[in-house]
């Protein structure tokens, strides 16, 4: 043992380490609490949906009618509406989001970039219900008259445009969703593009690449897993979005291939009907919708991770 100032310094554990232990216990218990809350949520959803699931079995997921009067409840129209509206919204928002992100990260002059970024992020902070109001007042009339009417007259023999334009319906919901997810997709992609090391750009430039070629062949490929992650984050937002969609989608539990016709999503159906549900089976069926929504987001997140992981692995080991 070392002797300092005539006193021996102990090598045994000192009392100070009690604080260490307390901290560790606290951190562990908070993590466990979160996990517990999650499990409780799943349990509650399952418990609430049990009546509907035991009445209809797995047919609950595939049944196409939702009729409180005849007590037939099927989740398929809402599942279909959720998946189709969010995928279409992503397809509409994805390309402009990527281009906007490229503009911000690679092309925009430095003095202009912060204000443009700020405005785009401002889009994300507008409350959903305000989007809904704007959609009803501005988007729906504009959709119905020039756009949908034109599509109906000229492309009416396609199933997607083959029904009477109403304004309110799937297409308007897709449009508002696309606008709402844009800022998320843009800001994530922009950050990922910005994080691409400069030596990648210089390597391409030094080979005699134009700016365009540098962006498309060096910068975007380097960032692709992050960009996919950003787009899937946006898809997750679209799946869960409730208020604005409820106001614009028309709220009819129908499966229609026509984009002009009213539809429903899981979240908007729950929000619309929960307060006025007529029977325990109705409530339970709405809980079942909640369970389906939960499962979809879970699958989507899992799929996103898998995709990002595979792209990353592909970067390291291709062919």
């Amino acid at each position: 043992m070392a002797v300092v100032d005539g006193t021996e310094r102990e090598l045994t554990r000192s009392r100070i380490r009690i604080g260490d232990r307390l901290f560790r216990f606290w951190a562990w218990s908070m993590a466990a609490l979160l996990l517990g809350l999650m499990l409780l949520l799943i349990y509650e959803l399952l418990d609430g949906a049990w009546l509907a699931l035991s009445t209809f079995g797995l047919e609950f997921l595939t049944e196409r009618s939702w009729n409180p009067v005849s007590a037939r409840y099927g989740a398929w129209p809402a599942i279909y509406g959720t998946v189709v509206s969010s995928l279409l919204a992503l397809a509409v928002a994805g390309p402009p989001a990527l281009l906007a992100a490229i503009f911000l990260a690679e092309i925009c002059p430095r003095w202009l970039e912060p204000s443009v970024s700020f405005l785009i992020e401002l889009l994300a902070s507008i409350p959903s219900v305000v989007y809904g109001l704007w959609g009803l007042q501005v988007l729906v009339p504009a959709m119905r008259d020039p756009i949908q009417q034109w599509l109906y007259t000229h492309l009416g023999n396609l199933p997607a445009f083959g029904c009477q334009p109403l304004g309110i319906g799937m297409m308007s919901a897709v449009a508002i969703l696309a606008i709402m997810v844009l800022p998320f997709a843009i800001s994530v992609s922009r950050d990922v593009l910005r994080a691409v090391p400069n030596d990648q750009r210089e390597a391409m430039l030094a080979l005699g690449a134009t700016r365009w070629e540098t962006i498309w062949r060096a910068v975007v490929p380097f960032a692709r897993s992050g960009i996919i992650g950003g787009l899937l984050l946006a898809l997750g937002r679209a799946v869960g979005e409730t208020m604005a969609v409820t106001m614009l989608i028309g709220n009819r539990p129908d499966v229609s291939s026509c984009l002009f016709s009213p539809a429903y999503t899981l979240s908007s159906q729950i929000a619309n009907e929960f307060a006025e549900s007529v029977s325990p089976l109705h409530v339970s069926s709405l809980m079942g919708l909640g369970l389906a929504l939960f499962a979809i987001t879970l699958l989507l997140n899992g799929g996103a991770r898998l995709l990002v992981w595979r792209v990353d692995r592909g970067n390291r080991r291709r062919r």
């Binding site: 210089e202 391409m204 080979l207 005699g208 690449a209 134009t210 490929p221 291709r318």
Partner: peptide, 19 residues
């Protein structure tokens, strides 16, 4: 600074495929 998303072949071919 090779391009990490490209194979050895594609790395060498990168400049030839430009313009």
């Amino acid at each position: 600074n090779p391009f990490p998303t490209m194979s050895i072949y594609d790395n060498v071919a990168a400049g030839l495929r430009l313009n």
